[in-house]
Amino acid sequence: MKLRYIKYFLVITVFAYACKKSEHIQEKVETFLGFQKPKNFPETAYNFANNPVTKEGFELGRMLFYEPRLSRDNTITCGSCHIQSSAFTQHGHDVSHGIEDRLGTRNSPPIMNLAWNKAFMWGGGIYDLDLFPISPITTHEEMDESLENVLNKLRSLDKYKSKFKAAFGSEEISTGKFLKALSQFMLMCVSSNSKYDKVMRKEGNASFTTTELEGYELFKQKCSSCHAEPLFTDNGFRNNGLVPSSINDLGLYTATLLATDKYKFKVPSLRNLKYTGPFMHDGRFLTLDAVFTHYAHEVQATENLDPLLNKNGIRGISINSDEKTKLMAFLNTLNDEEFINNKLLAEQ
């Protein structure tokens, strides 16, 4: 069933190098074949049947993603807080930075492998990718604009009329088409070409070094129950024992009001950690070292602490410095340079 969608959507970017060494001329030949489920990935969660990714829809979505008119004062785009070179996060910012230098309360998460996501936001609340952009557009600390105004701004521009027509068959710019186009772009932000993926798919002669392999074994023992392969998240919400932040962010509880959800946040993927720091829902850890220190020594017994971090009365995960080195080596194999350099995903 899903294979049908895969067939529609495959992007091949062929780089043909003419006189490679002396001329530095790069010719790009693109054949847009749409969304492709990587061989080593599970079935997608997104309902592609209701929004098949097309070249025109994707390109419109990309234009919208990099469109400053989505913000009230026409200053910031989705790409401002989701920067491709940082694997679509906002590098160097603990919490996201909106219009008029307003600061949010949470760290900007990556736009990556969203087709497999069932819940969005660090604290949940949104369960359909198509409905997601309404939140950053309307949030006071982010784009602080109304959806109605955004659509009116777009309607006044001829370039969008033709793009909407190409993508959806008519010049009409509606909430549904606008959001579906954005989804098409975001769905195409697939990171699946890290060294890890190539090893798993047995591509070429890709193989782990001894240290990486030892790190992988340790990872499977100590980390994978939450950061499940191959997406490196179980898509769940868990309390990992952080000291509550100064604003006492209650995480998932805010959206569900269930006491058992207090201090639970979405389990982030471990892909592209090289580019996505700082870490945690509020960006409190600037380095991976600090993250390891947290899990090894600083896990707090807060309400709803995940049982996996509190086994046999011992909090945290035991990781010695040798193990840490090996785990770091493995985590490094999850960085996907092709993803952050994929020109298809860049502002044109």
């Binding site: 949104i126 359909d128 409905l131 309307t138 959806l147 109605e148 105004n149 909430t175 549904g176 959206a255």
Partner: peptide, 23 residues
């Protein structure tokens, strides 16, 4: 979600009847 159910209807400060953050 069209007509009165369009999330864009009314804007978020004015007459809007849709919660973006908690769908």
């Amino acid at each position: 979600r069209t007509g009165v159910l369009d999330p864009a209807l009314g804007g978020h400060d004015g007459g809007g009847m849709y919660w973006g953050w908690n769908s």
